[in-house]
C-alpha cells in the first residue's frame, strides 16, 4: 500500500555511518591520540595522559556534536524551504536567510560599537540577533512571494536581499574599528569549534524546537507537494502552516548561523543527496533521513577541514562550499533536472 517502504536498511546503514564518521572525526586533530584511548575517554575510563581526556571532552567532542547539530539543522531547514517554495534551488543560503543572520550579527558587533552603544556579546545575544535577522529577511521574502507568483522571481529576490545585506555590512565595516571588523570576519568564516557545553545545550534546545515544529508541519508539507491550491482543498490551513514552516526555518538556520557562522550549501545540497538514496518525497521519511545525512556530511566536511594542515583548521564555510557546489552541479548535469 502507499508508502509501504519503511526504508529500514538505509536508515540502519546511515546510523552506522554516522557513528563511524563521529568516531573518525574525534580521532583527528593536531594532537595524535590513539583510538583505543579515545574510546576509553568516551566510555569514562582512564587515559595514559590526563591532557588527552581534556582535549577529547572539552575540544573534540563539543566540536563533533556541533557538527552533528549544524548539519542536521541546516539540512532540515533546506528541506522545509524547498517544499514551501516548491523550488529545488531553495535553501537557507539562496533565500537570503543566512545573509539576514549575518546582517543581524554585523549590526550587533559593528553597528552597536559605531553608535557608541556597548553590548555584552554573549553567545545568547548573538543567537537572538542572528535569528531576528534571518526571520526578518524570511518575512520580507514571504511577503514579496505573496505578490509575485513566479518562484524564480522569489529566488532572485532572495539573492537581491543577500546583496543588500552585504552592502549594509560593507558600510558598517567601513566605519567600524579594526578589532570589531576582525571579530565579524572571523565569525563569517564559520567555525564549529570553541563551543562550551552550555552553548551546545542552548543550541540543542533551539534546534529541537525547530524540529518539533517541522514534525507538526509534516502533514501540510506533504499536502504542499501538490501545490497550495490542492493543499487548501484538502483542508490545510495554508497561512498557519506557512508561518509554522517559516518559523521553524528561521529558528534552525538563524541559531546555527549565530553559533557557527554562515555555513554554505549544506541546506541546499543535503535534501537532494538524500533523495538519491531515499527515493521518496514523503516528508515522514525525508525528515529523519536529511537529519542523518546532514550530520554525516557535516562531520565529513569538518574532518576534511582539520585534516591536511593538522596545525590549523580551515574555515568550515570554505569546505562546505568546495564539497557542496560540485555536488549540485553534478546533480544537475547527471540527472538533467532536479526532480523533487
Amino acid at each position: 500500500m502507499p508508502a509501504v517502504r519503511s526504508y529500514k536498511i538505509p536508515f540502519i546503514l546511515f546510523s552506522l555511518l554516522l557513528l563511524l564518521c563521529f568516531l573518525t572525526n574525534i580521532s583527528m586533530g593536531s594532537v595524535r591520540i590513539p583510538f583505543s584511548q579515545i574510546l576509553s575517554v568516551l566510555l569514562g575510563g582512564e587515559t595514559e595522559k590526563p591532557s588527552w581526556t581534556y582535549i577529547v571532552l572539552n575540544y573534540r567532542l563539543p566540536k563533533a556534536v556541533m557538527a552533528v547539530l549544524t548539519g542536521a539543522g541546516l539540512a532540515v531547514s533546506g528541506l522545509l524551504m524547498q517544499t514551501l517554495f516548491r523550488n529545488p534551488l531553495a535553501g537557507p543560503f539562496v533565500l537570503g536567510i543566512s545573509s539576514g543572520a549575518s546582517l543581524g550579527v554585523a549590526i550587533l558587533i559593528m553597528g552597536a560599537a559605531t553608535l557608541g552603544i556597548s553590548v555584552f556579546l554573549s553567545s545568547t545575544v548573538f543567537a537572538i540577533a542572528a535569528t531576528a535577522g534571518s526571520f526578518l529577511v524570511l518575512l520580507a521574502v514571504i511577503s514579496v512571494s505573496l505578490r509575485v507568483r513566479d518562484t524564480m522571481a522569489i529566488l532572485i529576490i532572495g539573492l537581491m536581499f543577500g546583496s543588500i545585506t552585504s552592502a549594509v555590512v560593507g558600510v558598517l565595516s567601513y566605519f567600524s574599528s579594526a578589532e570589531k571588523l576582525q571579530q565579524y570576519i572571523f565569525w563569517s568564516f564559520g567555525s564549529l569549534g570553541n563551543m562550551s557545553w552550555n552553548e551546545l545545550l542552548l543550541l540543542f534546545i533551539i534546534l529541537s524546537t525547530g524540529i518539533l515544529m517541522s514534525i507538526a508541519a509534516l502533514k501540510s508539507l506533504n499536502a504542499l507537494l501538490l501545490g497550495e491550491n490542492y493543499a487548501r482543498s484538502m483542508g490545510t490551513n495554508i497561512r498557519q502552516s506557512r508561518l509554522l514552516i517559516i518559523g521553524a526555518t528561521s529558528l534552525l538556520a538563524g541559531s546555527i548561523t549565530a553559533f557557527a557562522g554562515p555555513v554554505a550549501f549544506i541546506g541546499l545540497a543535503v535534501p537532494h543527496l538524500t533523495r538519491q538514496v531515499f527515493n521518496t518525497t514523503n516528508h515522514r521519511i525525508l525528515l529523519p533521513a536529511v537529519i542523518l545525512y546532514g550530520a554525516v556530511l557535516m562531520l565529513i566536511c569538518d574532518t576534511i577541514a582539520q585534516w591536511p594542515a593538522s596545525e590549523h583548521t580551515m574555515p568550515i564555510n570554505a569546505i562546505t562550499s568546495i564539497v557542496g557546489a560540485p555536488v549540485v552541479i553534478w546533480l544537475l548535469v547527471r540527472k538533467k533536472k532536479m526532480i523533487f
Binding site: P2, K219, L224, L225, L226, G227, M234
Partner: peptide, 20 residues
C-alpha cells in the same frame, strides 16, 4: 495546474486525498 512534485508515486498521490 501542474503539481510541483512529480516524484510522488501514483498510490502516494491518491493517498494524499485522505488528508481531511
Amino acid at each position: 495546474e501542474q503539481i510541483p512534485s512529480r516524484n510522488l508515486t501514483v498510490a502516494e498521490t491518491i493517498a494524499l486525498g485522505r488528508q481531511p
